[in-house]
Every structure is written in C-alpha cells, then in structure tokens.
Design a protein around this nucleic acid. Structure first.
Lengths: 348, 348
DNA sequence: GCAAGTTACGACAACGTTGTCTTAAAATGA
DNA sequence: TCATTTTAAGACAACGTTGTCGTAACTTGC
C-alpha cells in the first residue's frame, strides 16, 4: 500500500504511470495548481490516496527552494513550560500546513561563538521561516543573523522595535492593570509587585499595568513595593521575603509570573502566613504550577500555544505574498482572568 | 563571504571551480572520504572555510537517501520539564554530528486516527532515526508504525520488551532502593510511597525499589502505604491527603517524582505539618521544581538530557553498521542522590 | 623491466521533484 | 467558417549533491 512494485516508496512517477498522465500533471494536482481537468484531477487524486503517496520533501525543496521546515528559536533558561507550549502550538500549525518543526536553541548571550554557531545552523537548515520567543526575539545579534540569512521571521511578545518584523502579542499591560484592579476591588490597598527581568518586554509591560492601575486609583506605588525578580521561583521567594519584612507589610503580592508566585507562597508558609487569609498572592501566565500550587493560584491565562500557532500561520501565509516584503503584520490574542483560591479580601 | 558571484549561496560547484578539481573531489573532502591527496584536500578544505560553504541538505539527502534529521517523539501530558530536557540533550548531540532535531507529538492513545496521522508524518518527514520517550516508547501501535517505516529507533527508559530495540536507561530500581534506605537510616520506619502511572516503566521500577528496600530491612510495606499517583502535582496532593489521614500516619513520604512531591508539600502545609520537622518528603528526578520548592526537595538526580544525548549518539553511530540490524545496544547512565532540606530524622 | 596492484581523481548518471516553455485541442468571437 | 484566445497537458531542463564506474599515473614485487 505504501510501496511500489520495486519495494520502494511510491514516487510521483508511479502515480503518473498508473494514471496515464505526465509527472507534471500529478505535480499540479498535488500542489493544487490549476490547469488540470476535473476528471484527470479526480483520477490522480484517488491514486495518490490509494497508493499512499507522499511527496519526497528533499526533492521538493531542492527543486522549489523551499524546505517546508519552520524553526523555533529559543534560549533555554528554565522556562520549560513556556517553550513547551510554544512548541506544541507551533507544531499544530505546521502539521496542518504540511510543514515540520525544527527546534534550535541559542546559547545565552555570554557564550563565546554562540551567534556564529547559530548563523551556521541557520544557513544549513534552510528554514522557510522562524519563530522567535522572548528573550531571544530581542537579541540584536540574533536578529541580524536571521536578517542576513534573508529569513522571514515572526516574533512572539517582543520587547521593542515593533516595526522591525511581524509579531504576535497579548495586551500584558492591560492584563496586569486588570489583575491589580481585581485586588483593589477586593479591598487591598497595599499591593506589592514582583518584577521580571528587563530583557522581557512582557515583564516591563506588566509592571506598567500595575503602576497605572494604582495611579488611576490615586495611589503612587512606593518604590519598596516593587521588588526585582527573575521569573524564577527562587527569585520570587527572595523578593517576597524582603516584602514581608517591610514595616507596613503588603496585604497582597502580585508576581509577574506564576513561577515567582509559587515562590511567594513558599515564603508566606515560611513566615507562618496563611494564604489568602493573611496574604493574597496572584500570578500571571496560568502555567500548570498555578493549578497545582496550594492554594491554587489566582492568575491570568496567557494563550501561549495559540500565539505560537498564530505566529506560524502568519509565517506560512506570508510565504505567498513575496515573503512579507516590508509589511509588518501584527496579531493580538486575548488573555483571560482566572480566579482560583489564592486571593481574597485583606484581613480587617 | 557567504555568497558566490551570482549572489546565491555557495555551492560545491563554486568550490570545485576555484580549487580546480572536480565536484566529486570536493564531495570527498566534505564527507571525509579517502582517495584524495593531502595537498588537494588541504586546498579544498581551505576554500570551503574561506567561502563559508555549507552543503545543501536537500540535495544531499535526495542523493544519499539520508535526511540528516532525527525525530524526537513524545506525548505531551504536562511533563514539560522532562520533554524539554530531552530536547536539549538530543539537540546537543545532533548539532555535534551535523544533524537537526525535529519534534513530533503523538496524540494520546484515545485520539481517533492518531496513529495513522503519526504514520503519515513519519513517511514524509523521512527521519534517519527517532528517539522515543516514555510513555510513547511502549505504545505498541507507535512501535509498529515506526518499524513499518523501517526506521531505526532508540527508546528512553522503556517499560518492557527490552530486546526489541536499543535503549538507554538509569537504574531506577536501585535509585529508589537507595532513596528508601536513606530515609530508613535517618530513623524512619513508617515510609509511604506515591506511585506513578503503570504505563511508565520507571514508575514501576521505582516502586519495586521501595518495596525491596523495606523488605530487606524486615518490613513488609503495608498496602495502604502505597498510594496511586499520576506523576502530576495534584495527584501527589490527593495521595498525600489520604496518607496523612491514616490512623498511623507515615513519618516520611517518598513520591515517585518531584512534581508529586511538591503536591505532598502543599498537602502538608494544608494539614499544618512542618516539613521536615513533622514529615519528611522526598522526590525523584531533580527537576527545577525540586530546587525551588520550599523547603527544597531532597531527591534523586536523573540525567535526562544526557540520556537523550546518548540516545541520539547511539542512533547516529548505528547508521554506520547497516543500521542496527538486529543488534540491541544498551546504555546505562548514573543517577545521583541529591540531599536538600525536605528530609530529616522523624519526630521522636 | 614488466605485470599486477594501488592511488587519486574525474565523467556521468542518478535522486524525485518543480519551473519554464511548448503544443494540441477546445472554446470563443466576428 | 476561420482567426483568435483559452485550456489542459506534456517535454525537458534545472535543483546540488552522492554513488558507481572508469582510467591515467604511480607503486610494488620479482
């Protein structure tokens, strides 16, 4: 069923011979090109399915100068969940369109020769396009390498230079604003914030949302309420420790991601504080950690997989019209507030 | 530097012309084949570097019938960390050998048409080989699909049928045995265990190690001490709740993975138990969650990335000698006990 | 000094598609 | 009815490598 009479994979030649047409005609049917009569098309189509023919990607790319490969570029720094979601979403979109997903890791900036190695990989992988995740999507060297290779790319939640390429994003600023107001509306007035690294655009925008929400309610957030974090659980723990030692302790802590929020939970436990009775804690992202923490985290759902899916779709659609030539395409996806058990009105 | 005079990527033809030799000779140099004189080889080598030539993978695979693509097959069920580590390790090995890594997700068994879709993907991706992660590595349908495609594969920590293919593993049984004895030696006598799903071979072997350690010390583990878990944090939480309600409460809980151990920590917090003062908790795997939990988890380090690296190496080495024909190759890697803060002698 | 290897290379045909150009037949218009 | 356009299809040459085989030019052995 999947082999021709010589015991080898079915090729376009086999189809052509059996259908009594030229290989070019079969090629046209496969690629949904016009210029084929209805009956011919149907006959070829049927044979293709019957023999289980699948085009040879190598031959196809050699000839068409397309690889049907999309690359996802990331820098592994412990954000397994995020990268995993991106991959799953990207893969879904790829599969729908007959593409495959290749993953490539960029070494953290400090690594010697990292970018050169990356450029080499780009050149021999011959991707049709790549998706960039934060914080790589703002790394100037990486961007230059990709542009030098003439590759179309889409960035996910970029930090700056929005005109430089198409990108997908969610409104982090507004989401953080809503999250903060949610605490406010519960009655919290001393709301602290744990920041992410400045290399992530979303961290910055989340902080902005937090600040603007408080200002809107007529409160200027005190500097000591904003603690530096690194998006890692441990940094959330440390930041929370500092916040909980403040003379006027915050009644609520908003961590810029769930991982840090889990760290806050641990710090609260260490200080003998019951969440949410003595302290409310909210996160951001809605990772599995949020669901499995105790108490379950009130957070904001980030449609990571869907964003990646959208990014790949934009890439593939872009291949049609002269590869994005200059056009910047933007796609926004919606976040969603998730209410669980870690936030409640403050102690009276 | 990376383009020839026509502004297109440098090809083998450019090198050949400039070196004054035939393309075949260049090809020989590239592929480290013999039959080229020392000076010629040096001259070609230098030109290759100078012009930044990289072979076109499509052409190469079309001609050689190799894709230089390795696939990693997994089923996403929340084990982001594990899959992430596998990918990183596999990618490292691939890059060293000039291969690229393609990831493919298999839908959970219940999905309709899942395996057929998977078989299709296998056929058009034309991997040179694939790495299978648990629990996919024991899925009979998946194995049949891969074997039908004639693909060499290496399994990671398989569950059964060890003669069926090459595989890499760690001695989970012995590691769990050591972990249990470590608790015993601290003075614990009521040691409970939270199981993983039976579809994971390592879960089963971890349980065996736990049981045999207790038996060796002359204790028959009570059935109620072994709680069913699903390798997910929430299931650890639930299992711990049941264990902590036991009339004779265990003084230590050994969770078959870190994620569940974190769930146990949460359950302990809910019950007002201080870890490790009132209850010792140990995990398995040494994921980031173990480091960032509070208290930090005592666990066992699993060399996941290294295992994946080894798997890919075995695959690539195997391509040489007629593609593994019948030979089962096995590689064992070492685990490592990690002592942190979540285990201590039991209350007196 | 000559037959019998051995070494270092090249010519040429794959590999399985797609792109470009050509052409016979069918449809259209006057 | 005949010139003109449109449609459906095919011929043939890429695409950039590797595999197979052939063959001069050297070695080697006696």
């Amino acid at each position: 069923m999947q082999q021709n009479e010589r015991g080898e994979p079915v090729t376009i030649v086999d189809i052509a011979r059996q259908a009594g047409v030229s290989i070019k005609t079969v090629s046209r049917v496969i690629n949904r090109e016009e210029g084929v009569g209805a009956q011919t098309r149907a006959r070829v189509q049927e044979l293709v399915e019957q023999l289980g023919y699948r085009p040879n990607v190598s031959a196809r790319s050699l000839s068409s100068r397309r690889s049907y490969l999309i690359g996802v570029i990331f820098m592994q720094v412990g954000a397994y969940h995020y990268v995993g979601e991106v991959q799953v979403g990207a893969m879904r979109a790829c599969r729908r369109a007959g593409y495959h997903l290749v993953i490539e890791q960029v070494k953290p900036p400090e690594t010697v020769g990292g970018v050169q190695a990356f450029a080499d990989v780009l050149r021999d992988a011959r991707f049709d396009g790549v998706v960039l995740t934060p914080p790589t999507c703002d790394d100037p060297e990486v961007l230059i390498a990709i542009e030098a290779a003439g590759l179309p790319y889409v960035r996910m939640a970029p930090h700056k230079e929005f005109e430089r390429s198409p990108y997908v994003f969610t409104d982090d600023r507004r989401a953080a604003w809503e999250q903060t107001l949610r605490l406010w509306d519960m009655g919290h007035r001393r709301i602290a914030f744990i920041d992410g690294p400045d290399t992530h655009g979303s961290a910055i925008r989340r902080r902005e949302g937090y600040i603007s929400a408080l200002r809107e309610r007529g409160i200027e957030p005190r500097p000591e309420w904003i603690a530096k974090g690194e998006f890692l659980s441990l940094s959330g723990f440390d930041a929370a420790e500092a916040l909980l030692r403040l003379p006027e302790r915050p009644t609520a802590i908003f961590a810029a991601n769930d991982e840090m929020a889990v760290g806050v939970l641990a710090a609260a436990a260490k200080h003998g504080l019951s969440v949410p009775r003595d302290l409310s804690v909210v996160g951001f992202d809605d990772t599995p950690a949020a669901e499995s923490a105790w108490p379950r985290l009130t957070t904001i759902h980030q449609p990571t997989a869907e964003m990646a899916e959208a990014a790949v779709e934009m890439l593939i659609e872009g291949f049609g019209d002269e590869r994005f030539r200059g056009r910047v395409v933007v796609r926004q996806l919606d976040y969603r507030l998730v209410s669980r058990d870690s936030a409640a009105p403050p102690p009276v």
